[in-house]
Nucleic acid binder design. Structure first.
Lengths: 343, 343
DNA sequence: TTGAAAGCGCTACCAG
DNA sequence: CTGGTAGCGCTTTCAA
């Protein structure tokens, strides 16, 4: 049950392989009748080009590499879904690897992609990553590369949401709704994403001349458990917060759970704003107010930037997608409410 | 900035390519000194074998294909995560594609994998799939294949949880906790998974001599919205259910939301048992009682079966993993409680 | 319009 | 122990 090759087709028809090759790819220099015959036989025999032979010739694959910190985390999974769909549409397959949020694995994953001669690489950095030489090495080999979601200040194309500004808006909203002591829950400080979001928070406080309280800022890890402990610590403060901004996926659920476990009322005693998928908001009660990110769009744009590079446009581009505050039930209403719908 | 090949190394050292090939792969027939020199230079020059050339020679890749209905759905994402991790450990990369729960896409994905000459394919069937010829075609080409989670009654290796039995247990539990009218929410009837789970439900009712009420069984679609409408319809019955078994991921969240929106108390007015990831249970309040599936294990076992086939063991195996009822807060206690911990 | 042949990088086989 | 060479399937260049 061998696969049929161009040579097989050529033999059956008593012609040369190169003719078959030309005929099948629609190139000039084959008589219409012969081409017809060849194409027909190819179809009959279910001929499929051998991708390795093609790749060996051209030294590239119709495959792109994707590196994420955790595929099982719905945030990344949604991004990957669109990325994969767009790639497929453009004739690419996706090799997806999980760095388990560790720098060493990330380096290994990226190198593996390079060894696989992928057409390009899309990376979401791990929480640990602070050395970017593995990324530069990719660039030096002229392999297209794009960073998304968790990026770094490097001269590579990127796709993110408006991290700083979205938190600024959230903070302003909380202040306007009467919050006096707003806490900020983030990931590792070395992550640009956390840094940027924290920056938005601090900026907003400064703008409203609200003193910054160090004990209200907790930036450790984006894990559920980390969020749980941090929130508990916040609630144990002599002067606990009356609002919490949970700046990454699981932290909102963790904060929500911690607050409920203390028997506090949301939002009467304390407000919560998260950065999670919207369906999570749908199943909590009260429903979590959150910053809505267009995850699919992040994936789509990331592929677009990569595809541009594959097609020869090597200019570095930075895309910032607007994320919007979606008011639900874990925040108080403000009387003179600003319209956030188009800010 | 060209990649260095065996030939390059050979030239630099004034030896033959075949010697380099042997040296690098640790084969017999190279003097220790020469081997040392070759290995050293290879390392210096960052030599990496060209996977296409190797694949072209051997007509196979260190790549496995994974087809899932929806990567962004946390249930599948968790399975894929372990699958990918195990594959990586064994030296395989994963090409992951999303069938978007449609039969046509599934067929296309599978065929694409075959064209890519993957070493094996792991598939979770789409909701639509009722024709399995695309799977048999894979088998006929001697390409290893394994089904998981949503399988079919075909002569191929599979990995699933104890679908029928777990629902039987759930139903018994609900009956024992006083439920009189237990509703069953499932996916499409053509899915074996739904059929099996429904079977467990019906079996349990029969065992307890409880009449089956057709209007309490809703099997349409595994989507959130479908669950929402179905639950609403159940609640609108003249004689609504006092317990709901939501037999697939999102259906539990949907049922939960629908019930709350009607102002009913859980579990006092109505009990709910779901089949979701455990972290979903953690963020609802009351926390959802659910059937806990070891998703990671499904992924791990699926890879194991595939790897067995890749290594020449083509016997068809069926693995059934035990899923256990995890009591939380959306079901009532039963006084003389059975111990489910090791059933 | 068609054919012949070289070559992509690697491995395997046969000679020396 | 080492070298030479053919060939995996495909494309491309040159010749007929």
């Amino acid at each position: 049950m061998k696969r049929v090759s161009q040579r097989d087709i050529a033999k059956m028809l008593g012609v040369n392989v190169s003719t078959v090759s030309r005929a099948l790819r629609g190139l000039e220099g084959v008589s219409p009748e012969l081409r017809q015959k060849i194409k027909l036989l190819a179809k009959e025999q279910a001929y499929r080009p051998n991708p390795f032979a093609v790749s060996l010739r051209y030294d590239t694959t119709r495959t792109i590499g994707v590196v994420v910190p955790d595929v099982s985390f719905s945030h990344f999974a949604h991004i990957v879904k669109r990325l994969e769909a767009e790639a497929k549409k453009a004739g690419y397959m996706c090799i997806i690897t999980d760095s388990d949020d560790k720098y060493e694995n990330e380096v290994e994953c990226v190198e593996h992609m390079v060894n696989m001669h992928v057409a390009g690489i899309v990376v979401c950095l791990s929480q640990d990553t602070s050395d970017y030489s593995h990324l530069f090495r990719v660039r030096e080999q002229n392999i297209p590369i794009v960073l998304f979601d968790r990026i770094a200040d490097v001269n590579l194309s990127t796709v993110v949401i408006n991290d700083t500004d979205s938190v600024r808006q959230v903070t302003h909203y909380l202040i306007d709704s009467g919050a006096k002591r707003i806490a900020f829950l983030g990931g590792a400080n070395r992550m640009k994403q956390t840094a940027d979001r924290k920056h938005g928070y601090l900026e907003a406080l400064r703008e409203r001349r609200i003193p910054i309280r160090k004990e209200l800022v907790k930036c450790h890890n984006t894990s559920f458990n980390s969020g749980l402990t941090d929130t508990m610590e916040l609630l144990d403060l002599p002067n606990p917060p009356d609002a919490i901004i949970a700046a990454h996926g699981l932290l909102a659920s963790a904060a929500f759970k911690a607050v409920l476990s203390r028997g506090l009322r949301i939002p009467e005693d304390i407000s919560i704003v998260g950065y999670m998928s919207d369906w999570v908001s749908d199943i909590t009660s009260p429903r979590l107010t959150f910053v809505k990110q267009n995850l699919r769009d992040i994936g789509g744009k990331a592929f677009k930037l990569l595809n541009d590079q594959i097609n020869g446009d090597f200019s570095v581009k930075h895309i910032v997608l607007k994320a919007r505050l979606e008011l639900r039930e874990t925040t108080k209403k403000i009387l003179d409410q600003e319209d956030f719908s188009d800010t």
